[in-house]
Amino acid sequence: MIDKSIIEETAEVLIKVNKVRAIEIVKNFINEGGNPLDLMEEGFIPGINATGDLFGRGKLFLPELIQAADIMKEVTDIINEALAGGSDIKKERGTIVVATVQGDVHDIGKCIVVSLMKANGFTVHDLGRDVATDKIIESALAVNADIIGTCALLTTTMPRQKDLEDALKSEGLKDRIKTVVGGAPVTPRWASRIGADGYAKNAQDGIVKIKEFLGIE
């Protein structure tokens, strides 16, 4: 078991977005011979969950969430390096393919979603914006994705999310790959109408849905 004060501080550095101290904690922990995977599991993952929860409740705001995700990225890199080819901390949690649908060039929101997914330890393949339905499916199969997340920011591009559902159905992939849809004009009603498995109101909500699908607590 890791010292309780360290666990508390890992959560605190994320919530207070103290990157310098976060890096110090990880380095000290590794130098003192601790297993960095324990620090990730017991400290940082619950910490980013708490951060996401505070964001969901309007106690933290987008710039803070973005910075917390960035701290997670740095910390993950340091830990992966320390493990030097040992068990990669990302691999166990699931693989997600993310894209903004064809005809739609918005991607700020998607980038936030992607960084938060990575911060939560998922393997994420970000296909970018304006991505054709075929390309999304092809990439998902290539990386053996568990989940496809698509984002549509325009009422005119929302139908592409339906195209994806139809294509997955006709290719018999619906039970292999779950889908989550999001974007400003997208609603839970739209998600259920087109047959998407989940609707994400915002980045943190997306994490919650993904964890549900993957059976992660």
Partner: peptide
Amino acid sequence: DLKVVALCMSDEGM
């Protein structure tokens, strides 16, 4: 004579 809003957005993105 229509008034037209010209939105600065292109296929290359925002």
